[in-house]
């Protein structure tokens, strides 16, 4: 899995990489949920559809991550598997799915709650063939 978390003085940075923007977004979501739980302990049983839009790719990343947090919280779920499609020029539209299951503190190795993805150190781009998507999450 091509994702990581990085140091930030008070909170945590998350980053996803991939051969496409979509893959980088999927991995960024993995990185974020890895702050909350050991991802391997969450089975991709239930599927939730996510739709967000924004004019810029970096703002779109934050919208995607925050919508995932909202939907997970509304359903008392944790997600561990993601799929993303992005379309459009002027207005970028993201259609994605998140898979996971209901929180079970007995079985899921829980860590800390992420309050939100933020615009801090927010960057979406490409280095050579590799896309990256990163930001700091507020915990």
């Amino acid at each position: 899995m091509d994702y990581e978390t990085f140091e930030h003085e008070a909170d945590v940075g998350i980053a996803g990489y991939g051969r496409s923007l979509e893959e980088a977004f999927e991995n960024a979501a993995r990185a974020m949920f890895s702050v909350m739980v050991e991802l391997e302990s969450v089975a991709p049983k239930e599927r939730v559809r996510i739709e967000v839009e924004a004019e810029e790719a970096d703002i779109l990343l934050v919208e995607w991550l925050n919508e995932l947090l909202s939907q997970a919280h509304l359903r008392s779920m944790l997600f561990s598997d993601f799929e993303v499609r992005v379309e459009g020029d002027g207005m970028l539209r993201l259609e994605g799915t998140a898979k996971g299951e209901r929180i079970d503190p007995e079985r899921h190795r829980l860590k800390v709650e992420v309050k939100a993805a933020t615009y801090s150190m927010l960057e979406v781009g490409r280095e050579g063939e590799r896309y990256f998507a990163r930001c700091v999450v507020d915990v």
Binding site: I59, S70, A116, Y119
Partner: peptide, 16 residues
Amino acid sequence: RALGHQIGMDYIKELY
């Protein structure tokens, strides 16, 4: 709690 977090999420794009 979550309500405050969501207000932030909802308004950040709007304020930007």
